[in-house]
Design a protein around this nucleic acid. Structure first.
Length: 573
RNA sequence: CGGAGUGUAGCGCAGUUGGUAGCGCGGGUCGUUUGGGACGAUCAGGCCGCAGGUUCGAAUCCUGUCACUCCGACCA
């Protein structure tokens, strides 16, 4: 491609709307343009990267038997009614001219299961793995970070169909491997972690996280064994040695105006760990009280599992006022105005003589010990795990944390969808049995943005060569010097003929502009055709080794570049 | 949905006590330049997000509304 013909409107300044570095650089480099919140158009460079990532996913999934299909964006409501998912809040809905209801596809379990139930009738037709790479639509409560969380985005979604747990396990593992290969080939440091399955359900699931400095998720890893989990899912093991504390008589403490943990700590000059945080929640509509140590966070999904509740949320203000009989900020387990079940985090079994809210304005209670001053309805693991916690899987390890971006999520669904939708097959013994399913999602657009988050410097993007829009950029330093132009065009054509993805910057711009643009758009290998030509040489440099330039004889350039491209790619195998 | 912020030229921004809008970059044309976002000349470009209101007069004050961003809730 010649840069003079390429549509890549680069920006010198950072658009006001972009906060995240990937968002800034993708806009500045002319990869994408925003249309509305969380909705983007891809320009030529962005789409090339997108398609390179998509192609890598295809290759890896095809390798273990995946078959590509393409399902519609419009999904009739009745299909989602079969599994009850027509009530999912992130759905975009619409009606056709006859008032028939449709939703915009947000994931396609129902659609693919509908295909399979009408076509797969025998165990002999399985295993089957179908996938698509398609635009997904979700009315996210808060789109953010450019391509990181959009309302419209591209997802690879794969679905497996099997007749035995062993087969399901095998394809799940194959997919797990394939995803690892995809991210490795995309040059992304990644980690598969145990995660919350959300409402999609199923028995086993893993998230694939790309590790970046400012990812939106926290992942925890054991420093001793292979345990890794999303912090929101991380288990906290119960400490075996329970330290005996002699409960002292509780006492009222005046804490005027101290609503928050920080304010109470500052006022009383104590550490947050001496406090118990009392959080009023609503579980399936009924008020419950959750207790965690003052320096911990309540984890709502974990709390919901302990409760066995469908939905748990923080109670609204009127409920808090009613349950505690006090203004916000003074809730405690002792003396509730409206007695409610009290769920305490296991950690509170240790220690005692805590400070809690007094359920009265401007007052706390000191020396409060669970079991002594109030009764706990149920103990459980309800706090969010943090770095430093003991590993739940091995004895010696402790957890360390890192930030990551969720780029893939795979689930063993089991028969959840096949039962609801009557997707049955006949087994070897002739029995009608629900198909065992798995589903496998990979965010293509999010992977693209994550790659920028992971690979950039102050000058711009540093694409891994496997997903770069072009592998090599040729800069012609003077468009009026016909020897430079002729030599550059010839090298460009030879490189193309040798199968190298090359971009020739033949624009009538100053050389500085061309260098800046090449760096901004992140072309991995740069060839400068200029002064050295008099000696029969051009200069070659790598984007990731800024400032290092090597003189290469023009006659050797094609071989040199072909070898470089090959070497760069092999780094990512 | 709660909290905070921002909407002025294609982009980034300024605009004083209310007096009808400017700077830089970018764009067109001409010339000089050509190895790190050139220089000079010249031209074009605005419903000051939108709708009301106050006022002789509103980018500026008030009310409402929409959009975008960030924090949180939420996130298949």
């Amino acid at each position: 491609m010649k840069a003079s013909q390429l549509f890549f409107p680069t920006l010198r300044e950072v658009p006001r709307e972009a906060e995240l570095i990937s968002h800034q650089l993708l806009l500045r480099g002319g990869f994408v343009r925003s249309v509305a919140a969380g909705i983007y158009s891809y320009l030529p460079l962005g789409w090339r990267v997108h398609e390179k990532i998509a192609q890598i996913v295809r290759e890896e999934v095809n390798a273990f038997g995946g078959q590509e299909i393409h399902m519609p964006v419009l999904v009739p409501k009745e299909l989602l009614d079969e599994t009850g998912r027509s009530a999912v809040p992130v759905l975009f809905g619409l009606k056709d001219r006859n008032q028939r209801e449709f939703f915009l596809g947000f994931t396609h379990e129902e659609v693919v299961t509908d295909i399979v139930r009408s076509t797969v009738h025998s165990w002999k037709q399985m295993p089957l793995y179908l996938y698509q790479i398609q635009t997904k639509e979700r009315d996210e409560p808060r789109p953010r970070g450019g391509l990181i969380r959009g309302r419209e985005f591209t997802m690879f979604d794969g679905y497996s169909f099997d007749y035995s747990e062993e087969k399901l396990d095998a394809i799940y593992k194959a997919n797990y491997q394939a995803y690892g290969n995809v991210f490795r080939r995309c040059g992304l440091e990644h980690l598969a972690v145990e995660a919350d399955p959300g409402s999609i359900g199923g028995s086993e699931n893993h998230e694939f996280m790309v590790l970046t400095e400012n990812g939106e998720d926290t992942v925890l890893r054991c420093d001793s064994c292979t345990y890794a989990a999303n912090a929101e899912r991380g288990e906290v093991p119960e400490t075996s040695s329970v330290e005996a504390i002699k409960p002292e008589a509780s006492e009222s403490i005046s804490t005027p105006g101290a609503h928050t943990i920080e304010e109470v700590c500052a006022f009383l000059h104590v550490e947050a760990g001496h406090l118990i945080k009392s959080i009023i929640c609503t579980a399936d509509g009924k008020p419950v009280v959750a207790l965690v140590r003052g320096d911990r966070d309540l984890n709502l999904p974990k709390f919901a599992r302990v409760l066995g509740a469908k939905s748990v949320e923080l109670a609204d203000v009127p409920t808090v006022l009613r349950v505690t009989g006090a203004p916000m900020g003074f809730a405690g387990p002792v003396g509730l105005a409206e007695p409610s079940p009290i769920y305490a985090d296991n950690e509170l079994k240790q220690g005692g003589n805590y400070i809690v809210g007094a359920n009265q304005a401007d007052a706390h209670l000191g020396n409060v010990t669970p079991g002594h001053d109030f009764q706990v309805t149920t103990w459980g693991d309800i706090r969010t795990a943090v770095a430093g916690d003991k590993c739940p899987r091995c004895d010696e390890g402790h957890l360390t944390d890192a930030r990551g971006i969720e780029v893939g999520h795979i689930f063993k669904l089991g028969t959840k969808y096949s039962k609801d939708m009557q997707a049955l097959y006949q087994s070897e013994t002739g029995e009608k049995t629900p198909i065992l399913m798995g589903c496998y999602g990979l965010g293509v657009s999010r992977t693209l943005a994550s790659a920028v988050e992971a690979h950039h410097d102050e000058s711009g993007i540093m694409w891994p060569i496997t997903i770069a829009p072009y592998e090599v950029g040729i800069v012609l330093t003077n468009m009026k010097d016909t020897s430079i132009v002729d030599a550059g065009v010839q090298l460009y054509q030879e490189l193309k003929a040798a199968g190298v993805d090359a971009l020739l910057d033949d624009r009538d711009e100053r050389t500085g502009v061309k260098f800046k643009d090449m760096e901004l758009i992140g072309i991995p290998i740069q060839v400068v055709v200029g002064k050295g030509l008099a000696n029969g040489e051009v200069e070659v440099s790598m984007r990731r080794e800024k400032g290092v330039r090597t003189a290469v004889a023009t006659v050797e350039l094609v071989d040199h570049i072909v070898a470089l491209v090959k070497a760069e790619k092999s780094r990512l195998m």
